[in-house]
Design a binder for these strands. Structure first.
Lengths: 344, 344
DNA sequence: TTTAGCACTCAGCTTCATTGAGTGCTAAAG
DNA sequence: CTTTAGCACTCAATGAAGCTGAGTGCTAAA
């Protein structure tokens, strides 16, 4: 339906987008002539910009102001005009690589410091979803007797997560019997991913075991909680204050709404989840986001893997006036780095 | 040095504080006559207020405005005028009691949801320090072989924390040998608190064990990390947006500084730590706080215990214009509740 | 098709006067 | 000596009026 843009219009659109990204001020025809360096006069540019506005790529905040890109304009820029291979500079690379340098043991630490680095490099707010436990597969289950009445259930997945939980052993249990239960569980569960363990499977297991020994009611709580956990995936934030530096957020009310959003982990999760099915980097501009509260924002997301399993997503959130090519290149680098860190 | 206030001045100061807490507007002499209900005329009140200002309990934002309490004024109010026994109402009590109702297993969950409830009841921002691991004592150490090369170290404290970590076992190790090492460690460490385990003690242990079997280099990493952890205590925040609703934070720049503070966990920790030595509730008003960024705020803190050991602190942070008596009663209730939750 | 010229628009800033809440001071009343 | 009424004064806040400048749309000429 929309006619393809000719070369000149493309150049003008690009100039407007780049200028607006840099200055956050509406871009006038004179400014374009200066940046665009094609010997055209402002008047010509004005005509072209009027066209671009009619086509929906630009808008005017008021009659006597310059133009700013519309959501459609940004989309066109991202899809057709942007230099996709802008690589991030050495300082940034170094910062990104530093995330794991000091042998961070805990996966959570890696995630948190990634969020910090990513937000400070991009000057935007950054969200990282913690690893999705439910996509991991059982590796083994152990039960470690602590004292007469209590035991420690340890659950290990193929992606290296370890979960544990103290349970009450309701009656004395010989090591041999315990061993039997454990190997039965391992036999049944090994290789299944967490989200394949349905409540019905758990009930089946319970039936089998009750027949043999009437204990271990509590041992299953860990399993059941693991299932519930899918809704409890943590989302880590970095650089929440960065968004306040953007001129589009100088309004206290907008800030309030944004921060409110940041406190609702479930929403943050939804934001990231929407994009985490794709394997490559995804860009959502304005209303392309499903979550209403960020429809004035742009979100650039990628996913990270452990041993080739996609376990979580990383996103950079900012105003639609975002330096897309920079963010994309930084994010791509971060994702690569995370993948190699986590898989080793 | 400061003369004691007579009854009339006390009443007036109380009236000013209460009014200002409620309205956030400077309080004029007429308003005081209305609330104070002593048949005095505004002129008399004016004279008294002028006295109170000279004594430093009140200040005037500008010559033709009403008075607002100074930091000293709040302090006097809190120490001498406030009704200390205002109890929180049933709805609030119910909300507080709800924290643990659905059998929250993880201590972290309890802490996080406490922060949420406390902030929503007080309409302020709320900080809770996670339990201080270093104050716990060793209960036992276990090493659980996972496969040929790896083992899981499990560390259990008397307060019920469980920490674990996968380690590499550098050479094959018979269960018997492993058992020997573990019981030696238990023997040496049992009963010590985490912060009693110095680097020198660890080195001594290493020497002893190296003499016997030259392995387990890595087993000590968990110990060493536990020591480092003292600086890594997590502080949980609740209701960060509440502070934005306070009229004193309508300035974007103040908001920025505040949120910046909220991102610096180390500072938050320092804020809480300063007050967590005391056993009772502590109130710090304005410059009484050491941390510079909250010297326009008031902080009310309490501590929580597990089995009578003080392990962490809870604080409510807001503008100095805070409803102290309410916050105190709510916080007291929350602390009591936490104590009983965590010790069971 | 492009450009120069010109009238027009409109947000943002400054200036100025007005308003009203509240004060301090003084002199009279209790 | 204490309290009160009266009055002049101060000052933030509000809003109207006018100015400025960046930028536009349109038209006519190159």
């Amino acid at each position: 339906m929309t006619a393809p843009l000719n070369e000149r219009k493309k150049n003008i659109l690009r100039a407007v987008v780049l200028n607006y990204i840099k200055t956050a001020e509406p871009v006038g025809s004179r400014t374009v002539t200066r940046t665009c360096r094609t010997g055209l006069s402002p008047a010509t540019i004005r005509n072209e910009m009027a066209d671009l506005e009619e086509m929906g790529y630009l808008t005017q905040p008021h009659t006597s102001a310059g133009r700013i890109p519309s959501q459609k304009g940004y989309r066109y820029y991202v899809d057709n005009l942007m230099d996709p291979d802008e690589s991030c500079n050495d300082d940034e690379s170094a910062l990104i690589s530093s995330v794991n340098s000091e042998k961070m043991r805990e996966i959570e630490q890696i995630i948190v410091s990634s969020a910090k680095v990513l937000s400070s490099v991009t000057n935007q707010t950054c969200l990282i979803m913690g690893p999705q436990f439910k996509k991991s597969a059982f590796h083994q289950i152990r039960i470690l007797p602590l004292d007469e009445k209590r035991g420690l259930v340890v659950l290990i997945t193929d992606t290296g997560f370890i979960k544990n939980k103290v349970i009450d052993l309701q009656q004395n249990l010989s090591p041999g019997e315990l061993q039997q239960v454990v190997s039965y569980l391992n036999h049944k569960l090994c290789g299944l991913t967490i989200d394949q363990v349905t409540t019905s499977l758990i009930n089946e297991l319970k039936r089998d075991l009750f027949r043999r020994l009437e204990i271990l009611e509590q041992a299953f709580i860990l399993l059941e909680e693991s299932l519930k956990e899918e809704k409890q995936i943590r989302v880590f934030l970095g650089g929440t204050t960065n968004i306040l530096n953007q001129p589009e957020f100088k309004d206290v009310d907008k800030i309030r709404r944004m921060l409110n959003l940041f406190e609702q982990e479930a929403l943050l999760f939804k934001i990231l989840e929407d994009s985490s099915s794709e394997d490559d980097i995804v860009i959502r501009i304005g209303a392309e986001n499903e979550v209403a509260d960020i429809q004035e924002c742009a979100l650039v997301t990628g996913t990270y893997k452990i041993h080739d399993k996609t376990l979580g997503a990383v996103g950079v959130l900012g105003p639609t006036r975002m330096d897309y090519s920079r963010v994309i290149s930084v994010l791509r680098r971060m994702v690569d780095h995370l993948n190699s860190c986590l898989s080793s």
